[in-house]
Simulated scan of single mutants.
Amino acid sequence: MIWISQSTLPGGDIGMTPFLVGIVLLIVFGIEITLVLIFRKRIIGLRKKLTSLIVAFLIYELTMWVIGGFGEIVLLESFKKPFEENIEGAFSFSSIFALLIILGLILINEKLNKKTLHNNV
Rank of each mutant, 00 (worst) to 15 (best):
F97H: 04
F39Y: 15
L58E: 12
F91T: 00
L105R: 12
F70K: 12
K41N: 11
F91W: 01
A56H: 02
L112V: 10
K114M: 09
I67F: 12
R40Q: 14
F39N: 08
P82D: 09
L53A: 04
K114R: 15
N113I: 11
I102S: 06
I96W: 05
A90T: 07
F57H: 09
L105H: 13
G89L: 00
I106G: 02
N86D: 05
I101K: 10
E72K: 12
G89P: 01
I43N: 00
L50Q: 06
W65V: 06
I106N: 01
N113L: 13
S52V: 11
G68E: 00
N86Q: 00
L50A: 03
K49L: 04
F39H: 10
W65H: 09
F91H: 04
I108F: 06
M64H: 14
L99V: 07
I59Q: 02
F79I: 15
N109M: 11
E84S: 09
S94I: 10
L103P: 08
S92H: 13
G89H: 00
K115I: 13
K49S: 07
F57I: 07
R47D: 12
E84W: 09
T63E: 09
R40W: 12
T63N: 08
N113H: 15
I67T: 14
P82N: 03
F79E: 15
E110I: 01
P82S: 04
A98L: 02
L99R: 00
I73T: 13
S94F: 05
F91L: 02
S78Q: 03
V66P: 05
I73V: 14
F57G: 03
K81W: 08
